[in-house]
Design a protein around this nucleic acid. Structure first.
Lengths: 212, 212
DNA sequence: TAGATTGTTAATCGATTAACAATC
DNA sequence: TAGATTGTTAATCGATTAACAATC
């Protein structure tokens, strides 16, 4: 049985992935936990512990092969899969996500944008037509959509989530400032921008107090 | 001397703030840690511990006054201040942030957008003119800007950050997928969207393995 | 082989939870 | 007053760091 991996570890994986890609682009093919520690800012001990949750990717006396480790972490993150994705809410944020090519490159294929406001329906973002949220459930079922990105105002987010769940979505990337109520087999990742900004505000305040 | 507050606690504060606002809007004026626990999903014990880092806001036998607690947490987060803010990078994401009225309402006054691409310079987003990033340093100094939001591609983010630091900015809200090198008196809060999406991807994968 | 560095166990540190006396 | 619920101390749990034998 697979060992339980804590969220703290999981959230470090994408960062390893990013730094390893960087190293590859700089043509560095071998790295020790100590060297990686110096550029990524985690302790060498933590890096070895983290990686050993998933298997022994290193070699004593040598370190880690950058390309191999990059690929392995990619697999652990599920980046070898392709996920059909839709975006709900075609406001600025929805459009920004639709336009960011990095997500597509990582295997998140954005198939359509949905919107409730009739003024937007029928318009196009890149190649993507904006569709009426009324037909969303059918679209998800017919096109085997796995992931939905919620970029609606908070008032409609739970409603949209309920529709997504009914249509059989597996995962939700939620940008609305609410905590969605979901069945436990649906995975959710929240991006609460206001909470992030308020954290910055707290830290700024702290700093100002310290200087006084 | 002020007691040290851990990041875990700090990151929960905006969530308390959000739920307390909700309660106020629903005309609930009094709440116990136990009741709050049930709606916010932290343990009652944790809630009391968290709040007591900042002072005794409750009353034995009664609980907490919602409005008072909401205001106190707002003050702790520094939301009674107004911060002059600029956005660097006028792509979709920069525009999305400029257009979101919630940030303005919380005291983050967006004063200008800066952009390197001449095609965008001079255009307007709402009332905001897009300015040339070349004049950014002077603008910051002349207008007493405290916060900058970085929405540039990753290649220019560190360069922009260096300019911001030189001009005397206090805090950076960074959306570029890099870890910025900054002097320690400049506060930074990262929003790494790709890391968030990859976390969702991991969790989806995990779930699928479990069902098999 | 000698040196380097992993994988892994043990020790430490910090955060969360439990318990309960204080008190409204 | 009796009941409720906080503030706070103590216990537990989990995550990070240190140490070192294994081994390339």
């Amino acid at each position: 049985m697979a060992k339980h991996i804590s969220m703290a570890v999981i959230r470090r994986l994408p960062k390893y992935h990013r730094y390893l890609k960087d190293l590859l682009e700089r043509d560095i093919h071998r790295i020790s936990s100590k060297e990686l520690s110096e550029i990524i800012g985690f302790t060498a001990s933590q890096i070895r512990q983290d990686l050993n949750n998933f298997g022994g990717f290193g070699q004593q006396g040598y370190g880690y092969n950058v390309e191999e480790l990059y690929n392995e972490i990619g697999k652990i993150l599920g980046l070898n899969n392709v996920y059909k994705t839709i975006i709900v809410g075609a406001g600025n944020l929805g459009q920004a996500i639709a336009n960011y090519s990095g997500f597509q490159k990582s295997g998140f294929e954005i198939k359509a944008l949905f919107e409730a406001n009739p003024r937007f329906i029928g318009l196009k973002i890149r190649e993507l037509e904006i569709l009426d949220v009324e037909i969303m459930e059918d679209y998800i079922k017919e096109n085997d959509i796995k992931i939905a990105v919620i970029c609606t105002p908070k008032e409609s987010a739970q409603d949209v989530a309920d529709k997504l769940v009914r249509a059989g979505i597996n995962g939700i990337w939620n940008f609305a400032p609410v905590d969605l109520e979901l069945p436990e087999d649906v995975v959710v990742e929240n991006v609460h921008l206001t909470e992030s900004l308020f954290t910055l505000s707290y830290l700024l305040n702290e700093k100002n107090k310290a200087t006084k």
